[in-house]
Design a protein around this nucleic acid. Structure first.
Lengths: 116, 116
DNA sequence: TAACCAGGTTTCCTTTTGGTAACTCGATAA
DNA sequence: TTATCGAGTTACCAAAAGGAAACCTGGTTA
């Protein structure tokens, strides 16, 4: 007879929806790094490029508008000349920081395990 | 004069390396969901497919071998007939669970914000 | 002896992604 | 009047990733 699919303690909805939803926010290339860079305060476009060396202007720009649109960060144009633009985490974005810290924690152990 | 790139409190190495490293583990399609499904105990291949309906056999299979190779989960063949295969989190994999819980937390608020 | 089971793998195709490099804009400095 | 700056955008391209569906294996059951 076919094996039974055992009940799992964790019902699929609603948790994994949230998981999927939030993973979508931090999954794009460099998205987590952008948030990480902003956790210590506001940064300008070119500062972020310097923080995250391999990122291209195109991808950074894409990522910033996605994150802004999702309410994770805010974009503030300073009326200087030339205008400079500062990005900073919103309250919501700030809530991602502990999650990323937990991820960094695990990063350490993964590193120890397969890289010395 | 050109704007200065301000020092950020967070040095780029070594933290974002860890972040990038660990994000790579949980970034593949459905990787986080697989870990989430396993957090309550071992599951078989077809159980995982049932837990995560839109996942294809190919992607699940790919994801499982990546996660095994990275030491996040273990694969145990039961000598039954036909043999059944159980996957479960390793200790290392278990350490990802709090990180995912933090992410789910934020998922809730993101949902409230842009979806009601 | 034909069909079914678990647990995959293979093939093929489409979509998504990210990278490079060149270009834009309005304002200011040389 | 030409170059420079910050902050992007655009066009183009290559690679990677994911989905669908068919196939495989060895043992079992109808």
């Amino acid at each position: 007879m076919p094996l039974k699919v055992r009940k799992n303690q964790s019902p699929d909805p609603p948790q994994p929806c949230m998981l999927t939803h939030c993973m979508a926010v931090i999954s794009g290339a460099w998205a987590a790094n952008v948030i990480w860079s902003l956790r210590a305060g506001p940064r300008r476009f070119n500062e972020l490029r310097a923080d995250i060396p391999p990122i291209s202007a195109k991808v950074l720009s894409t990522r910033l508008s996605e994150l802004e649109q999702r309410g994770v960060l805010s974009r503030n144009v300073q009326p200087t000349s030339p205008p400079s633009v500062e990005y900073m985490l919103t309250d919501l974005g700030g809530e991602l920081v502990p999650a990323l810290e937990a991820i960094v924690e695990v990063g350490h152990r993964l590193k120890m395990r397969d890289g010395g």
